[in-house]
Design a protein around this nucleic acid. Structure first.
Lengths: 283, 283
DNA sequence: TGGACTCATAAGCATTCCTGATGTGTGCGC
DNA sequence: GCGCACACATCAGGAATGCTTATGAGTCCA
């Protein structure tokens, strides 16, 4: 079960083709074919249907493990590298959209003031990329946000070797068009809105709402991107409702169920040094 | 970063010797030496000091990852096997000592009644072994116990691909010798006892208490094993105090801080079938 | 039916990785 | 201080692995 072979399996499954995966990985199609055959022989069962190429039941199981496993391998490498490199002069932070709240930005500024010679880099990246960045050492710290019950941890996609701690929680509001009958209310219950149409965005994934609250959220426009301004305008134009942290703009506070917008700090092993100090400052 | 090489590194670190590891793994000493060299070349730095053999800083980092990584590899294999095997007739459960409370035993009986043809196996194993058993497919379900703040999850040693859900919580009592000045009390605060002498047992690890409550627990007799009867007799004889779930015998309830004895159910991917049913019954 | 496409298989070759033998450095007893 | 025992490193050689190129075989479609 060489990581090499798993990487190939993942590529083949993603592209749905041996040849395409081969090209992507810089192998010949033959090599890919042999690698998959090796893996199947090792496990004693087929992992992929051919023509068309699709994972078998067993393949699905293995693929579920493959991603996190490869992430862990990356993380191990990165951790070892970090251990050898000593305290870093550069500190890279990857943050998901909406995770850098006002208060966190202030804490970050304070930490920077305490380490004047530190050059700090902040990048907004896709929510899934945050964990991958931190694991692979492309970032020293990560910040992700999401919706959760108060003081519950976020359900992060197998974060493996990383530690996650909550660093901020904030109320949620429902963004509504200003002419919506409920728009003027001081607060409302989500149960009153489950039959409304909801925007499909990564900022507030419908799937997560269904996880927390059950079915019933009717899907509206699907928006790809992370621009809050755009989202607010889409809401105003009636494409659907969405949840946002209170500080991200006006809206009607959610009274029930009790949910918050939560930000978590992600990091691997932190040797004493600027990275650990900044992490402490954020906490 | 072949799992093969990691396994070797782990063996060498554990045994503190290339030759011993080689014997254990069925290689020659030469092969082990080369494998370590390969790994060190791959990562570009030494992982082990020689003479005596001990992990370097980087080696320590890598070793922290190696265990969970290998566990994950096992878990992936086991999951794939399970996917192919179809619903199991046998159901193996690994449980840590103290995790099978009265209520859980009853729920298990009910689940068994619902599946008369299922042959159920229950094994008490070391707490760390529970996760490993489940991951490697030696057990379909696992139950671990531990001490935690109410409704907080246990801090399981990187459980990786497994899901853990709380299935029982119970009050904690301090086991005291019957002639102890506080023995008759209706309840007490742990803060009053931090300077007392505490048994070192796996049933109630001192390290965990220190994690939760800070330093100050003075170590008494170190007991290896999981026999509650023995532990109670050791306490009575004055070897030290310990915490036990209320149902494990008399003692003085802990009023502050608020702590509970918590049991969690551990499992991997559960295809519909007896395993899933039993898991549901336990929940 | 023939052509295009895709995965499987075969042959050849380079590399990897093991074993067995030997080298080298360390610690200890005499 | 010498030599021996011990333990890890290195070397040489052969088996196995894994890649490439070339070709085979099955499927889809005109």
């Amino acid at each position: 079960m060489d990581p090499h072979l798993l990487r190939t399996l993942v590529a083949v499954a993603r592209r749905g083709s041996f040849s395409a995966a081969a090209e992507e990985l810089g192998y010949t199609q033959s090599a890919v074919s042999q690698q998959i055959a090796t893996l199947e022989a090792d496990l004693g069962m087929p992992l992929l249907h051919r023509r068309p190429v699709a994972p078998t039941e067993a393949g699905v199981r293995l693929l579920e493990h493959a991603g996190p496993l490869l992430l862990r391998v990356e993380a191990a490498r990165a951790d070892v590298r970090r251990a050898a490199a000593g305290p870093a002069r550069r500190l890279a932070v990857s943050a998901s959209p909406l995770s850098v709240t006002a208060s966190i930005a202030v804490r970050l500024a304070r930490a920077r003031a305490a380490h004047p010679r530190l050059d700090l880099t902040l990048a907004t990246v896709d929510r899934d990329t945050v964990a991958a960045d931190v694991a692979a050492g492309r970032a020293d710290l990560g910040m992700t946000d999401g919706i959760a019950a108060p003081s519950d941890p976020l359900r992060l996609p197998d974060v493996g070797p990383l530690t996650a701690v909550g660093i901020a929680e904030e109320d949620l509001v429902v963004a509504l068009p200003s002419d919506h009958p409920l728009a003027g209310r001081p607060g409302l219950r989500l149960a009153d809105l489950v039959d409304a149409v909801w925007l499909q965005t990564t900022l507030c994934p419908l799937e997560r709402l269904r996880d927390l609250l059950g079915d019933g959220f009717r899907p509206g426009l699907a928006y790809t991107g992370d621009d809050v301004h755009t989202v607010r305008n889409l809401v105003e134009a009636g494409h659907g409702l969405t949840l946002l942290p209170a500080s991200a703009g006006r809206g009607v506070p959610v009274l029930a169920p009790r949910l918050t917008h939560r930000v978590e700090l992600l990091h691997g092993a932190l040797p004493p040094g600027p990275a650990a100090d900044v992490a402490a400052a954020l906490r």
